[in-house]
Design a protein around this nucleic acid. Structure first.
Lengths: 165, 165
DNA sequence: CTCATTGCAAATAATTTGCATGTAA
DNA sequence: TTACATGCAAATTATTTGCAATGAG
């Protein structure tokens, strides 16, 4: 693993404001999932999950590991991988793959069924929602006889800040 | 590399019919690009490129290598990687990444600006075009001040054949 | 002749896994 | 005390690269 790539992006973006109610919902979801399978609550899982809740959306494993190690320097990266996989399994997080070859995770949020705009220069990721596109997707799927399960819609370009350069 | 995964998908799909004129266009494009940079024409490149033209769209490296080795068993996989990279550079092919972790290549075709429907059960890939979605994409990009360079729009679901199972 | 190209093996890079040790319940 | 978890290192998997040998121009 290329450790030189670690850079805490959370210092670049303002602290994330999240609805405490929503976080409680996700904590409960995780707790239920874990107790149902006999999984155990550990210090590592706790610090990783709470850190994930606190940092910007679309964190990479590397970024999250760096943040986690500020609080507990002895957490191994395999544990972060395993814990994020767990969060994805129980529906708390979604795994995303953009063009740069590494997995990013975001808080699952059923209500915000969004897609992504990605700046190819600075890497900024903007979420967007467009119900008319969703509607056309359904129409296209029907045209080809597909029963739609999920989709991925990413648009790449230059954000307003990077167009001047 | 996992060599057990080799399976020639071209035997599952009917031989691809392509416009000979379009292929000549791509051959010329490649020849120009190569001579401009002093690159050399070799037997390996020739067999790889012609095989690529003959097989189904969205070939993986593994699949293409298997086809190529039917004609010349001594071609190394590094050469296939390098040649497909070359095709992508000169605009003859596009590299695509779907969910299965391996790169797939398709003939570049400016006129057919299509996206993909992918069956999560059998892996079938269907191309679709929907100008109204393209138009909405431009609208969304403008809304967020982005200058659009490219996009990727993939829809995952069950194709009609797999819905019955 | 000269420098691009090839095939092979070794290197990368992200992620996963085996295993001895640690620790919730 | 009994599995599950952890940390580490080693394994995986797709892709890339170094290098000596080959070959195109």
């Amino acid at each position: 693993m290329n450790r030189t790539r670690i850079e805490s992006q959370s210092t670049k973006t303002p602290p994330v404001l999240r609805d405490p109610k929503a976080l409680d919902h996700f904590r409960a979801l995780l707790a239920t999932y874990m107790s149902k399978r006999g999984l155990r609550s550990t210090d590592q899982r706790h610090v990783i999950v709470e850190t994930f809740f606190a940092v910007h959306n679309h964190v990479s494993i590397e970024e999250l590991l760096a943040e986690v190690r500020i609080k507990d320097s002895r957490v191994g990266y395999a544990t972060v991988y395993r814990t994020l996989k767990l969060l994805a399994e129980c529906g708390v997080a979604h795994e995303r793959h953009f063009g740069d070859g590494l997995a990013r995770y975001e808080l699952a949020d059923e209500s915000a069924h969004h897609d992504h705009l990605i700046c190819v220069d600075c890497g900024k990721i903007v979420e967007f929602e467009e119900p008319r596109i969703e509607a056309l997707q359904d129409e296209v799927a029907q045209r080809y006889g597909f029963l739609l399960k999920s989709h991925r819609h990413e648009m790449y370009g230059l954000c307003s800040d990077c167009q001047g350069k």
